[in-house]
Amino acid sequence: MPQWNIIQAVNDALRIEMKRDPRVVLLGEDIGKFGGVFRATAGLYEEFGETRVIDTPLAEGGIIGAAIGMAMYGLKPVPEIQFSDFIFPAFDQIVNELGKLRYRSGGQYSAPLVIRTPVGGGIKGGHYHSQSPEALFIHAGGLQVVCPSNPVDAKGLLLSAIRGEDPVLFLEPKRVYRAAKGEVPEGDYTIPIGEAKVVREGKGMTVLAYGAMLHEAEAACAESPDLDAELIDLRTLWPLDLETVTRSVQKTGRCAIVHEAPRSCGFGAEIAALVQERCFYHLEAPILRIAGWDTPFPYTLENDYLPLAPRIRKGLGELRGRRP
C-alpha cells in the first residue's frame, strides 16, 4: 500500500470516481491546467479534459450556483472552494439554495454535490486563509459536513460523499494536508458518512476531535497516559455519530471537545448540549471545550490561537481534577 498524504488521497479518490462515473465533473479556481493551489486536482485536467475539469473565474457564488444546477440535472459536480474562508460569497447559494432544495421541492429535487475546501489554520495565512466555518453550515441545515483527519479516511469518505444523494461540505484540514500520511489502500473503498472512529481506547475521559486537531489531541493523550483518555475522531461532523460519543462518555464520565474554530457557538457547543442531554447522570465533571479564541484568526499568533497539544494536555489535566 502506498504511503500517501491527504492531498494524494483526495486526488486518487477523484480519479477513481471520475473513471467510474462519467457524471462526475470538477470545477473551481485554478483546478484545471494548474492542478489546484494545493495540487489536489493535479493531473486530472490532462486525464479527463476540459469538459470534466473546469477552470472557473474567481466567483464562488457562480461556482456553487452553477454546480447546484449541474447536480439538479444529472451531473455529480465536485466544486472546489480554494480556501474555506472564500466560501462566503457562495454562502447564499449554499444556505438558501443547496441546503433547502430537497425540502422545499417536497422531495422532487435534490442537488447531490460535494464542495471540497481546505479548512483551518496552519499555514500562517492570517484572517482569510485560516478559518473553520463548519458550525455555520451545520446550523444552516440540509448539508452533511465531513472533516477527515488522515488520508485513509479522506479517500474513503470522499468516495462515499460523491456517491451519496445529499449535498456534502467536505472540509480538508490544510495544517495536515501533507503532514498526515498513511497507508492508503489502492483502488475502490468507502468509509460511511456518519461514523466516528475510536482511535484510542480509555476509561478516564472522552476526548472528541476532528481534522488537524485530532493529531494534536492524539499527541496530548499519548503524552499523558495517566489520563487514560479515549480519543474519538468524529470524521463526519454532521450527521454526528452520537451513539459512539454517548457510549464513550457514559463509560468515562468526562468529556472534552477540541476544535480550531472559536469556542462560542462553535460545534463544541452543540456537542456539549447533546452529550449532557444523553449522559447527564453519567457526567462526573462539566464538559470542557478546548478551542480557538473568540477573536478573528491572528497571523503571527497562530500557534497561540490554535488548541495545540500543550493547551489540550493542560485542559485535560484540569478536566480530570474537576468535580461536578
Binding site: K124, G126, H127, P296, P298, Y299, T300, L301
Partner: peptide, 8 residues
C-alpha cells in the same frame, strides 16, 4: 501589531 500580516 503583527496580527494581520502581509495581506492586510
Amino acid at each position: 501589531g503583527g496580527k494581520g500580516g502581509s495581506m492586510h
